[in-house]
């Protein structure tokens, strides 16, 4: 059984009178443990697709079954719940909470999930070690390099042990060496923790890490 089953997904944006069809009937499955790269030229609909899978945006039509549950059209609270417990997000521009330090940023989703303090401490210790930020755990985001910030974001995305991690161009704000390292780390986590990753990128080097590549063009899958 597929972790996620996407069927005939459409998304239109309305700008005044004009309608932009960003996605035109996307269907594919994501298996548990996948490491999927979404590739395509600018404006082809990568961000739109990831937002829909991550349930932070609603499709115009079509369905997304997450473990057999259609997440489209759920109430805002139910979607928040799913994002909290089943989905992790990594953003292009890191999106950390500026006033919180590394540990606190990682901890935030765990607090929202009401995890007991001791469980939180243990999990954060583990993740800080995994992403190699032990020496920086009390630093604020603005005291970190781009690569370090993105590692914090990875740890935060993983903290509640989600089934799926979504990353929209996680390397776009990083130099290519750091970007490749980040992808390598994601790949390692994919293998160790069996977390499913779906991410978009422009970085051609990254393709060799992907288990599966989905190519988009003009809102449709080309291969």
């Amino acid at each position: 059984m597929a972790l996620i089953k996407i069927t005939d997904l459409h998304k239109q944006y309305h700008l005044g009178r004009t309608t932009i069809a960003a996605l035109k009937g996307i269907s594919f499955d994501i298996e548990a443990g996948d490491f999927i790269t979404i590739l395509g030229p600018s404006g082809c609909g990568k961000t739109t697709l990831l937002n829909l899978i991550g349930s932070i945006d609603d499709p115009s039509s079509g369905s997304i079954l997450f473990e057999d549950q259609n997440i489209c059209g759920l109430s805002d609270n139910r979607k928040s719940e799913i994002r909290l417990t089943k989905i992790g997000f990594i953003f292009q521009s890191f999106n950390l909470i500026p006033v919180l330090n590394v540990r606190e940023n990682i901890e935030f989703p765990m607090i929202l999930a009401n995890a007991p303090p001791r469980t939180r401490t243990a999990r954060i210790d583990e993740l800080v070690e995994t992403v190699g930020l032990k020496d920086f755990e009390l630093h604020k985001p603005d005291e970190l390099s781009g690569g370090q910030r993105q590692r914090v974001a990875i740890a935060r995305a993983l903290v509640n042990r989600p089934k799926l991690v979504i990353a929209d161009e996680p390397t776009a704000n990083l130099d290519s060496v750091t970007g490749t390292m980040i992808i390598e780390e994601m790949k390692a986590l994919n293998e160790q923790e069996k977390v499913t990753f779906v991410f978009s990128t422009h970085n051609q080097d990254v393709m060799k890490y992907a288990k599966r590549i989905i190519r988009l063009k003009d809102g449709a899958i080309v291969s």
Binding site: I56, F91, N95
Partner: peptide
């Protein structure tokens, strides 16, 4: 928006 994306409810 980030907090909402990682699971914070409207309330």
């Amino acid at each position: 928006g980030t907090m909402r994306a990682v699971g914070l409810k409207k309330s």
